[in-house]
Amino acid sequence: MKVEFDEPKCVAAGQCAMVAPDVFDQRDDDGVAIVLDATPDPSLHDEVREAAAVCPAAAIRLVEQ
């Protein structure tokens, strides 16, 4: 799985950082998401899928390999 993040779309709702904290964080000054690990371990795939599904700005795209 590859995580693609469309930063300009991000509204910093922070749901990704709450659902998948090992893969997403938020920038200190404006809360915009940061991808910590663009090729997460399979054990994290479920939460990454959930993070992408709940992103209110549809800013997270997953390329499943």
Binding site: A12, G14, A17, D28, D29, D30
Partner: peptide, 15 residues
């Protein structure tokens, strides 16, 4: 909106 929201997000971030 993006500019304004980014200015007020910080206190409400998850961490």
């Amino acid at each position: 909106h993006t500019r304004l929201r980014r200015g007020v997000n910080a206190p409400f971030m998850v961490k």
